[in-house]
Amino acid sequence: MPRIIKHDRVVEDDWQVLTLAAGETPATVTLPADPVLLPLPVWLARRTEISSLYRTLGVWLDSHEGPEALADDIDRLSIIAVNFPKFTDGRGYSIARLLRERYHFQGEIRAIGDVLQDQLFFMRRCGIDAYALRADKDIEKALAGLSVFSETYQAAVDQSEPLFLRRRTEASA
């Protein structure tokens, strides 16, 4: 079974990612057996059908898509995956933060696509908590990417206060 990093550990995982092949449309594509991460257009087109078919729901957002499109569904989804078509495409970081901080999504946010060790730290800070590492990479080694820095300057999903607020309390303590 494929493995991913989840909550800082390597675990087995059976979620499939559905992508539309050439010629397939959201309305007509065959829905595979769950668990499956669906492309946003498929989910939007066939919400009711999918909800009755699957026990757990998961959708993936491409980097040009926005969390806004899932605003009404946030509580129904178990997993929202964020695709990184290339690791240098940084839109997914904003998407993940918005999902957590604006839409208060409590489920798993999974990075998929060109997911590499050296970006994991940033991903985690933005609220991503599962990482489907690119298949050709050593997933055990990549774990190290989660703990590169022991301290950070900015507030983010993993740290509610920027360093300057925490420095202050330390100094006055």
């Binding site: 690791f87 240098t88 940084g90 933060r97 970006q119 800070r125 300057y153």
Partner: peptide, 16 residues
């Protein structure tokens, strides 16, 4: 300096 610290390893804006 405030901006230096804010921008250093800003998690959201490393791949603009």
């Amino acid at each position: 300096e405030l901006l230096r610290q804010w921008s250093t390893f800003h998690p959201e804006f490393a791949f603009l």
